[in-house]
């Protein structure tokens, strides 16, 4: 075991796979010599060579298309998109090509591509370095969508993604790269060294795709989220003194529906959380599914805590971010509903 940040854990996962699988390559903008703008691929070019870990021209569509071409020719590329906000020039390749190749060729061609990309706000990144665009990708049949919330999961999930035969969009909440974050910008940043999930085995292990993690068991209300928001939910429930059951989905598609349903049937109440805008966000999907599966157990309407339906502002990012006080307010309303 070693104490790792999320960056180090992801780096470690890539390092292991580059070592044990010659078909793995990692590339993207500034990924090679520099090791990525957040340092996730740091040192990997030096260790594995510039034919395995390398820079690409600035063209997200081509990065994804090339990864697909390599994958259908037997490689397992891991492409980095520097910020999730910049993935859209590659959207057509993801939507029309990568996600459908297995289906349209009736399984003759498959594309085991992993696309890693940092997402989320809280770093004063303005509207083009803050997005959480996961919902767009959950609407695409054939794509696996994942988002870890801590170093342990990040490593095990990334290894699962790389070993999986379907394309995966792997969102990395950048606000969590160097430490857990409870959604209060005025509280000094804490580090992963003090967090149990900052303890990461050095060898190979996986966190399975499609398996949620129950971060806290509770009986009053179920809180379902992923990425940064699970930390906010934990802090808010604690401060509000509510006995919440908190579920970290980890895999967004295909998500662990049993973990969610079993919990909601037990608590009878549910709040879903994400940082992305509310309308047509993944919370809408979760909410619909919960009311279909748990209708007769519900004691209150399912609530959504989300970002607003606006671009991510710069100066007012903490009014946009669905932080602890908004979650506590929701908990209060939820628990008062009889």
């Amino acid at each position: 075991m070693a104490s790792m940040t999320m960056i180090q854990a992801l780096n470690n996962a890539l390092d292991l796979k580059l070592t044990d699988d010659p078909s793995v390559v990692a590339f993207g903008e500034d990924v090679g010599y520099f090791g990525g703008v957040f340092g996730v691929t740091k040192g990997l070019q030096e260790k594995h060579g510039s034919g395995r870990v390398y820079d690409s021209p600035i063209n997200e569509g081509a990065i994804i298309a090339m990864a697909m071409g390599m994958a259908v020719n037997g490689m397992r590329p891991v492409a980095e998109i520097q910020f999730a906000d910049y993935i859209f020039p590659g959207f057509d390749q993801i939507l029309s090509e990568l996600s459908r190749i297995r289906y349209r060729s009736a399984g003759q061609y498959t594309a085991p591509v992993t696309i890693r990309t940092p997402c989320g706000g809280g770093i004063y990144g303005g509207q083009t370095h803050s997005m959480s665009p996961e919902a767009f990708f959950t609407h695409i049949p054939g794509l696996i969508v994942m988002m870890p919330s801590n170093p342990y999961d990040a490593k095990g999930m990334l290894i699962s993604a790389m070993e999986n035969d379907d394309p995966v969009i792997f969102f990395e909440p950048k606000r969590l790269y160097n430490g857990p974050f409870t959604g209060d910008p005025h509280v000094p940043a804490s580090s992963w060294t003090k967090h149990p999930k900052g303890e990461v085995p050095e060898g190979h292990y996986t966190v399975p795709i499609g398996k949620a993690d129950i971060l806290r068991e509770g009986s009053d209300v179920t809180m379902v989220g992923y990425g940064t928001m699970v930390h906010v939910a934990l802090a808010a429930a604690e401060e509000a003194g509510v006995d919440a059951e908190i579920i970290d989905l980890r895999t967004i598609i295909p998500y662990d529906v049993d973990a969610v349903t079993n919990s909601v049937k037990k608590t009878g109440r549910c709040i879903v959380l994400h940082e992305a805008p509310r309308t047509s966000g993944f919370g809408a999907e979760l909410t619909a599914q919960i009311q279909e599966d748990c209708f007769y157990s519900l004691e209150a309407p399912v609530m959504r805590i989300t970002g607003w339906d606006t671009p991510y502002p710069h100066a007012h990012e903490w009014s946009y971010f669905p932080g602890k006080s908004r979650v506590m307010q929701a908990l209060k309303t939820m628990m008062e509903t009889v």
Binding site: Y124, G126, Q127, T128, P311, P313, H314, A315, H316
Partner: peptide, 13 residues
């Protein structure tokens, strides 16, 4: 991004 920012604090510097 202050009160006189013509972009109302919406954009990165």
């Amino acid at each position: 991004s202050n009160s006189r920012d013509n972009l109302l604090g919406r954009q990165l510097p």
